[in-house]
Design a binder for these strands. Structure first.
Length: 770
DNA sequence: GCGGATCAC
DNA sequence: TATGGTGATCCGC
């Protein structure tokens, strides 16, 4: 038995299999477990079973996906990567400008698992009923006091937007912030436990799981504790941390279950924060860009909601484990993954997420009301569509029931729809089907949304290349200045506020690009977005507003082209965009020409670089793109050269001495190209001699004009393509910095909320000698 | 548009 | 602790 197990364990599939069926102690709460032992048990118990076979098969499929990806990667050319880098970095700037740090989002997560553990450790508790309840109960009881629109997710999680509460709370007297210990509870807790110090981080499992459910009588704290001495009271402060401590305190008093919480400027970060000090703890990311980036820097991508074991494995094959690595490889990722995926990766690595929670209305349970609401939504939607001259073929109905379960039902019709009646005909069928599905019970919903997608716009038929339509349709064309100047903010907002009902932030971005139009209408007149996903579409609305606002202000400024850095006389965005395109293309063409001249020699050079030690990267390791990609990584990260293969190639061209942790930014990539063109000659590179010799040797007699010619002549800036008079790398680097950063950084540093020093925007990388 | 894959809970 | 099911969404065909 053990022998056969060992065999399995040594099989090539083992890693993936363990990853798949085994434990991943990356997730919170698993750190203390003997992972290996448990994996062994699982392996033993499941070996030979159908389950096991199936898992092996699935794992093979994942491996094939990875292989496919690596092959794709091998075909990526330097210029493709360069262009991708430019485009992605433009988007980064745009995203940075729209970063919203003004909200305070809290994610509450009940420590159910730990309750179970405690129960295990105290077998006598097994006779008691295990905790049963839901956050929707705590809706009503506690959380709604902090955010009336708080969003339960599943049974044991909830998001709150406490931004408004924090403002109000500043003026609250102590009385309103005083809460009492439930002395009748049997938790045996020490009162000091909650004396406003940071006890909440001490991970005390002070309470036992007991029953709480919707029928439990939960009287108001003040009534319950009337007459109790102040010794049993605790007063919470007015900060976000204090608010969350208060919430957790009250939850525990009510339910005798502990909860963990995260506080952050958006939902994604908040969720990851609640994981940080679990159980019975909390963590906050300050609403500062640098704080967000610091939090993310070494965070394993697996911690990110939405990144599961498959994505983790695929990214690991690219050498990406942490969020900062995810950022560093953004250009490569944009070429290897779908737009939705890589933009999601980019969002993650920048720490961007939804800053708004969805809103729900109170229950609607009669078919009549539901049809009525549906028609109303169709009417609003039809308005929006007609205003934009759009017709769509797919109508989607979204419903959330009273248990916060969300369903979407879609129907595609042959002819496009745009009027209220046309949309309603389709939507009511979808609604009717849902009503029938639960009959004879009534359909009990608290959210409805209608969306129309699959457009062919009038606008699209005409030539209007730089229109908002093309901007939104082609993600890769998004430039930070490519926003429709003709439209007023109001119109722009209206158009894009009808975001996708699908959950993620990028879904909505994409939806917006497709000019989807949707109208979601809770019973309040505002028409807030509602979706189950934590990344609500409202976020997009907000960001859109911000971006548009910035664009407006940009119109008043003299514009400097981020490629050629010449000031542009025109303030017309279309013209500017055209200029950028031309400028970019011109640069790329020149680069391409120069690079391709030496392509064969470079290929040889790269192919004979020292092999990788990274077992996650297979044969493709040898290809030049891979090497190049890794070069970016290593030139940008001081300590990465020791733990990945990069290695030696990187040393050839990178500064051998001190180097700060830096990103592979636009300038990095440009420099790398530059290095390839100019810096291989020994006297310039100043790299590791041994490795250089290899490089030189392999380059051999192919005698690329690049190397030899440049050796004697000049350094050519890969950005502006002008020959540089100097042979001093210091001067040359200075020129590169100026050339690359001039316009962009200047633009950015004018924004107070955009410090230039960070892993994402640092551009002071040096090559060669300083 | 459908089925399989991925992911969260 | 130790396994499975479900729902939503995404992706490729």
């Amino acid at each position: 038995m053990m022998d056969s197990m060992k065999k399995v364990a040594k099989s090539s599939c083992n890693d993936g299999f363990l990853l798949r069926v085994g434990l991943n102690d990356n997730k919170a709460g698993m750190q203390g477990l003997d992972k290996e032992k448990i994996n062994k048990i699982i392996m033993e118990a499941t070996k030979g079973s159908r389950f096991y076979e199936n898992e092996l098969k699935k794992d093979q499929q994942v491996n094939q996906r990875i292989e496919k990806m690596m092959q794709l990667k091998g075909k990526i050319t330097t210029q493709q990567l360069l262009k991708a880098q430019l485009q992605v970095d433009r988007l980064v700037i745009e995203l940075e400008q729209s970063r919203n740090l003004s909200s305070t989002i809290v994610h509450i997560d009940m420590d159910a698992f730990y309750a179970a553990v405690e129960m295990r450790d105290n077998p006598e508790l097994k006779e008691k009923p295990i905790a049963v309840g839901s956050m929707s109960m705590l809706v009503r009881e506690i959380l709604a006091e902090y955010d009336s629109d708080f969003m339960p997710v599943g049974l044991d999680e909830a998001y709150l937007n406490i931004t408004e509460h924090l403002e109000e709370r500043l003026n609250w007297p102590e009385d309103k912030r005083r809460f009492f210990f439930n002395t009748e509870s049997t938790t045996g807790r020490d009162k000091d436990d909650m004396n406003m110090s940071d006890k909440c981080n001490e991970r005390e499992c002070s309470s036992s799981p007991v029953l709480f459910d919707d029928n439990t009588s939960l009287t108001d704290d003040h009534l319950e504790h009337r007459g109790q001495s102040m010794e049993n009271a605790v007063v919470f402060g007015t900060s976000a941390e204090e608010v969350v401590k208060e919430i957790r305190f009250r939850i525990e008093q009510k339910t005798q279950l502990t909860a963990s919480a995260g506080i952050a400027p958006n939902t994604m970060l908040a969720k990851m924060c609640s994981d940080r000090n679990k159980p019975n703890g909390q963590y906050r990311i300050a609403p500062k860009r640098q704080a967000v980036l610091d939090f993310l820097e070494d965070l394993p991508i697996r911690k990110v909601p939405g990144i599961g074991r498959v994505t983790e494995k695929m990214l690991k094959a690219l050498g990406i484990v942490t969020c900062s690595e995810l950022y560093q490889q953004r250009a490569l990722l944009s070429l290897l993954f779908s737009e939705l995926s890589w933009r999601n990766f980019l969002d993650i690595s920048l720490g961007l997420g939804s800053t708004h929670l969805e809103r729900t209305f109170s229950e609607i349970n009669t078919a009549e009301d539901q049809y009525s609401l549906c028609r109303e939504l169709c009417r609003d939607l039809a308005h929006e569509l007609q205003k934009e001259g759009l017709k769509g073929k797919t109508v989607t109905l979204k419903l959330k029931n009273v248990n916060f379960e969300v369903k979407t039902r879609a129907s595609t019709v042959l002819s496009s729809v745009s009027t209220e009646e046309e949309i309603f005909v389709v939507a009511k069928d979808l609604l009717g089907a849902e009503i029938d599905s639960v009959a004879p019970h009534p359909l009990r919903i608290r959210l409805m949304g209608v969306r129309v997608s699959g457009f062919l716009s009038e606008e699209e038929k005409k030539y209007h290349q730089k229109s908002i339509t093309s901007f939104l349709k082609s993600g890769k064309e998004i430039g930070f200045l490519r926003l429709q100047p003709e439209k007023s903010n109001q119109e722009y907002f209206a158009k894009n506020s009808e975001a996708s009902q699908r959950g993620s932030f990028f879904d909505q971005k994409r939806a917006a690009r497709q000019l989807n139009s949707e109208s979601l209408s809770p019973n309040d007149a505002v028409g807030k977005q509602v979706s189950r996903d934590t990344k609500s579409s409202a976020n997009f609305v907000e960001e859109t507003k911000k971006v548009t606002g910035l664009q407006s202000s940009n119109l008043c400024k003299i514009f400097t082209c981020p490629v050629c850095f010449e000031e542009q006389s025109s303030s017309n965005l279309e013209e500017l965009n055209r200029h950028i395109d031309e400028c970019l293309n011109a640069t790329l063409i020149k680069d391409t020409a120069e690079i391709s001249k030496n392509d064969s020699s470079r290929q040889n050079t790269l192919n004979c670089l020292p092999q990788s030690k990274n077992e996650n990267v297979g044969e493709c390791q040898k290809n030049k793109t891979d090497q190049l990609a890794r070069t970016y990584q290593s030139t940008s990260t001081s300590d990465s050269s020791t733990n990945n293969s990069t290695g030696k190639f990187a040393q050839i061209i990178s500064d051998k001495s001190h180097r700060e942790r830096q990103p592979s930014s636009l300038s990095d990539i440009a420099r790398n190209v530059c290095m390839k063109q100019c810096l291989f000659p020994k006297r310039i590179s100043q790299g590791n001699e041994d490795h250089f010799e290899k490089t030189e040797h392999t380059e051999g007699t192919s005698s690329s004009c690049s190397f030899e010619a440049k050796e004697d002549s000049v350094l050519v800036c890969p950005v502006c393509n002008s020959e540089q008079k100097t042979m001093s790398l210091v001067s040359f680097n200075r020129h590169l910095d100026v050339c690359l950063n001039k316009g962009l950084i200047q633009e950015l540093t004018e924004k107070p909320d955009f410090p230039t020093k960070s892993f994402s925007m640092e551009n002071s990388n040096r090559v060669g000698l300083d």
